[in-house]
């Protein structure tokens, strides 16, 4: 009987599932596999239970989050009432402002179901920019596109509101 050698598993500290997941995100879709592997080393995977508060308004904006699975609610507290601003679903992100500005959180965020988030500390992202400027340029360009389209949407909303008035 021929002995079939078992394929040797390469010892690695890289979470390949995470690397594959990153490819599906608009922010990182243009990165090469090597660049995504490098980026994955800067990312923390955090699990949150339903209704667990992730950040509160006024906290320092030190981490940029991407939803790997689950759903989040961004809200403002008005007395005992919670005003819903928007929901953040799978593959969406929040906290990107912290990468560009030293501003505190402008709203609170909690999980509406058990969720897994990818957390990138802003200081770690700065280190990633320093070490992998080519990959960082692609990410920042993609992020710029997302932010610009958000601005466009807001502008349109404001114009419609003005016309309605």
């Amino acid at each position: 009987m021929p002995i079939i050698p078992k394929p040797k598993k390469k010892r690695t500290d890289v979470d390949m599932e995470l690397v594959v997941f990153l490819k599906g995100l608009s922010l990182f879709s243009t990165l090469t596999k090597g660049e995504r592997i490098n980026l994955s080393r800067f990312i923390y995977q955090r699990d949150y239970k339903k209704d667990e508060i992730i950040v509160k308004k006024g906290y320092p904006n030190v981490v940029f989050y991407i939803v790997q699975n689950g759903e989040l609610l961004i809200y403002l507290e008005h007395g005992e009432e919670q005003i819903e601003l928007r929901r953040v679903g799978e593959k969406e992100f929040f906290g990107e402002i912290g990468i560009f500005l030293e501003e505190d959180r402008t709203a609170s965020v909690k999980a509406t179901m058990d969720s897994t988030l990818l957390a990138i500390p802003t200081t770690e992202f700065q280190k990633f920019i320093d070490q992998y400027p080519r990959a960082a340029a692609k990410i920042l360009f993609n992020m710029g596109q997302v932010l610009a389209s958000n601005i466009l949407k807001l502008n349109n909303k404001l114009q419609t509101m003005k016309i309605e008035k």
């Binding site: 500290d13 080393r41 800067f42 923390y44 955090r46 949150y48 667990e52 992730i54 950040v55 906290y59 320092p60 030190v62 981490v63 957390a119 500390p121 200081t123």
Partner: peptide, 25 residues
């Protein structure tokens, strides 16, 4: 160095995760 700090911060609970990152920085 990075693995070491990554491991330490990964062990910290959600409530103190951002706090510890901010404090360390």
């Amino acid at each position: 160095e990075r693995k070491f700090f990554h491991y330490i911060f990964s062990c910290i609970g959600n409530r103190y995760f951002e706090f510890s990152l901010h404090l360390f920085e």
